[in-house]
Write a protein that binds this DNA or RNA. Structure first.
Lengths: 135, 135
DNA sequence: TTAAATTCTGACGAAATCGGTCGGGATTGA
DNA sequence: TCAATCCCGACCGATTTCGTCAGAATTTAA
């Protein structure tokens, strides 16, 4: 149950963009340097975040990335879910019956509770919350 | 953020032993069959759980495993933590300064909240809770 | 005392995942 | 036209995960 560095980097990058919200698009390079993330790797992550609709990109000179909506409307959950491919914990919980035997084992309730609790927490923290705690 | 099958198997096995609590030691083979877990693999997991003090083993004929204490005193958290080697999420949170720069980044608070929430949930569910929901 | 049942342990291996790199193409502003 | 920048897919090495296996140690029962 370790968090992937992908998730960690992702939050850092989004936080960086949040600080920059409202200004010019911010190039990958700038984010990478400020947050100490390998540039080529960050490129991938931002691409994913763009496909998830959390950031918008501007190509060409003076291009870069920016949040697609105000920091208060993007939660940590949004970010983690898109980078981790869902905070599902178990395929069994979503894709029906991945465990073979119709899956109404008693553990199922445990996983559900865990998943729901987790999502509740991460959805309760927005980028704006993170910004505010800086001051 | 997928749960390892180790964790899944672990909960299933412990649930199995909980059903058997108070009776004779239950051999690996029986647990493996009942819970559809590869026997040799389960052997490893139970060994870990024993070292963590959650189960006791009896060797030799008529031997097997049993819970070290009543189902009401073993939480899902106990099991997950011993099999996953801690529900830490990030080394940065425990082992001091694993992220290099003294780590008082704003994300840190997020991870802490996540970790604490997670642990609170899993520690709130005992094996007995799982048993009771069966009826 | 011997045989059978069972745990204990460490080594091994295949497959997946993860963190990261690279090269080259597409797009845009100056 | 040129430089900056995003876009995308392929690739790679390291680690982890899931699982197997062989054999040693221990205990019970016949």
């Amino acid at each position: 149950m370790k968090l992937s560095t992908r998730a960690r980097y992702g939050i850092h990058a989004m936080y960086d963009l949040a600080q920059n919200y409202g200004a010019q698009p911010r190039p990958i390079k700038a984010v990478a340097e400020a947050q100490a993330i390998p540039e080529a790797y960050l490129e991938q992550l931002l691409c994913t975040l763009r496909r998830a609709g959390l950031v918008i990109s501007a190509r060409g000179a003076q291009g870069g990335y920016m949040l697609s909506r105000p920091p208060g409307e993007i939660t940590v959950g949004d970010i983690l879910r898109s980078l981790e491919g869902g905070l599902t914990l178990l395929d069994c919980l979503e894709g029906e019956d991945a465990c073979g035997k119709s899956c109404d084992c008693p553990s199922r309730k445990v996983w559900k509770r865990l998943r729901d609790g987790l999502n509740e927490i991460v959805d309760g923290i927005t980028l704006e919350d993170m910004l505010r705690r800086d001051e």
